[in-house]
């Protein structure tokens, strides 16, 4: 479904989310509504305005590169859906 420029099938694929046909049509309509509402932003005068990515301006936050305790591999793997030999098991990527 195409609405206000948003091709729901295409964008859902970009987001790696599988949708049922019912979800596609409902989300498509709702997102069209929301996008129509945010058109409002076009009325704002933004010439010469710098964007704000972050409300408290800070740049280049660094810390000393020191070894500290982090998760053990057992802890890191404890929530893994599948694991073997101390590694995450995932589907084959390269044929």
């Amino acid at each position: 479904m195409k609405s206000a420029g948003l091709d729901i099938k295409y964008v859902a694929h970009l987001a790696r989310i599988e949708l049922t046909p019912e979800e596609e049509s409902l989300l498509g309509l709702q997102l069209a509504d929301i996008l129509a509402y945010v058109e409002k932003l076009k009325e704002a005068e933004i010439r010469g305005v710098e964007p704000t990515a972050h409300p408290f301006p800070m740049v280049n936050v660094t810390r000393p590169d020191e070894v500290a305790r982090s998760l053990t591999s057992e802890e890191a793997l404890a929530n893994a859906p599948a694991q073997a030999n101390g590694l995450f098991r995932v589907p084959k990527i390269v044929e």
């Binding site: 599988e18 949708l19 049922t20 989300l27 997102l31």
Partner: peptide, 19 residues
């Protein structure tokens, strides 16, 4: 995984954000 794991509002927002 993401189709089954996320609810409707989260899907709506991720898709809008992706767009």
């Amino acid at each position: 995984t993401r189709g089954a794991g996320f609810g409707a509002e989260v899907k709506r927002r991720i898709i809008l954000g992706t767009y």
